[in-house]
Design a protein around this nucleic acid. Structure first.
Lengths: 252, 252
DNA sequence: TCGTCATGTGCAGTAGTATGCACGAGTCGG
DNA sequence: CCGACTCGTGCATACTACTGCACATGACGA
């Protein structure tokens, strides 16, 4: 039977999804082709990041969550500076929505214990970090989006619609005048928009490396948020451009 | 059966997680390979920092590597035994509600990575612990009850009403024939009841010290759950009494 | 229609890797 | 100190992977 190369690769990926593994020799026999061809396919799939090669065959891509653990440990000085600056935005007695991400986690860790505040978050990591804090904590539930470790999806959006807050401290992965605020996941972008609507003010936590960067999915325009907290050099061309566009920038 | 080298290493790591130890000779017999191969695998895993070699086999990475806070979280051997036994109750492809608490956390940590399962939990700690696991995770939101680090209260109950599961692994602080299953917080008791109604079966995780104990707030009667998983001595008078009352006890 | 080019496939040869076995050294517990 | 066990190393073997090449196919343009 004649089979298109792309069909063959789909079959290989299907097999990986179903069985969680794949032996090159077996697949060659099953698809009636040579092992070389299977190996070539697997090599290309691996390069495309769709599978992982192992001796003898392939396995599905590793749950790419290990990266978060590493990111979590290093609250870089940059993120730390931004987090410290964010503390100024939090009024005593107010309600704050804390986004996921390392900068927000740093904010949670730095929250003064004598600050009376209610924290709403869709990040279980942040909820856990606040266990020792006297603050009232409200968790938004939903499907756990493993990459950023936040509740996400329709259920999370629905839960978010039930709350109101004074301030939303939002994390993004890109801040540019042309693309606005962007992030790497479409569901996450929607969740951020929902949370933003539930707060009187939204401030963006943007450590240095986010300034001038752009990710695939737009979250909000720059004029839809109250301002940006960043530790980037005030002379930074992008910051200068933001200032010209009347975007408030809180210098960390 | 053809087994990929990488699969073999995964199996070894799983075994270390569940049993906390591993004997090279036994694993060689079990995986139908030579001791040399097992030893080579263990050597490589040790180099990668994923286990520690000891004479005769291997143990998980030194607890000394974990922080003090982390060590506090380490389940007692009793809870570990119960958690291991609970794994048997989890069917591939099923949906499990995991309660809060250290025993449930241990279950989450021990979940084999090749077990296809959906986990619903109101514990952010457990959600975070499952980040590296391929399982689908659904978080129930609500007010964070700091003492047990779970979402609780009316909002959590409402969220719980939206889900259904095959199994609820419930933690309690007291198991007695006369008082039934009890816990220390009235909201938590209500939450456990709600979760129990959302699952086809409820099993109670009761490590040794819970047997015979009673806490202020009743959760359910003993005849309202499918059974109890405990590592207490089968000769224990309370267990004997439970047996007379037709309560199923899964011996850990 | 023909030649040419790009592409995909299979084959052969070579390099690389995994495994099991044998042997000597090391380790353990009495 | 001894016997039993475990460990590491070197080696032979079998398997897997990669490279270069030949061949077939189909597209494209002259």
């Amino acid at each position: 039977m004649q089979r298109l190369a792309s069909e063959r690769k789909e079959l290989l990926l299907d097999r990986l999804r179903v069985d969680g593994r794949l032996v090159a020799k077996d697949m060659a026999a099953e698809l009636d082709t040579s092992e070389d061809t299977i190996r070539r396919d697997l090599r290309e799939l691996a390069v495309a990041g769709l599978c992982r090669r192992v001796y003898g065959g392939a396995i599905p891509v590793a749950p790419a969550a290990a990266s978060y653990a590493r990111r979590q440990e290093i609250a870089t000085t940059s993120k730390h500076r931004v987090a410290v600056a964010c503390l100024e935005l939090i009024q005593p007695g107010s309600t704050v929505i804390l986004d996921g991400g390392t900068t927000a986690l740093e904010v949670a860790r730095l929250l003064p214990h004598d600050l009376d505040v209610t924290v709403i978050t869709h990040s279980p990591t942040i909820a856990v970090a606040l266990v020792d804090h006297p603050a009232e904590v409200f968790i938004l539930g939903g499907r756990l989006f493993k990459h950023s470790v936040v509740a996400s999806g329709a259920a999370a959006a629905e839960a978010a619609a039930q709350v109101s807050a004074d301030l939303f401290l939002m994390g993004v992965t890109g801040v540019r005048p042309d693309t606005g605020l962007t992030t790497g996941d479409v569901d996450e972008a929607a969740m951020k928009r929902t949370l933003s609507r539930r707060a009187a003010q939204t401030w963006v936590m943007a450590s240095e490396e986010k300034i001038g960067a752009a990710s695939p999915f737009p979250v909000l325009r720059l004029d839809e948020v109250a301002g940006i907290v960043s530790d980037a050099d005030p002379q930074h061309p992008v910051l200068a451009e933001l200032a010209r566009a009347d975007v408030r920038v809180l210098q960390a």
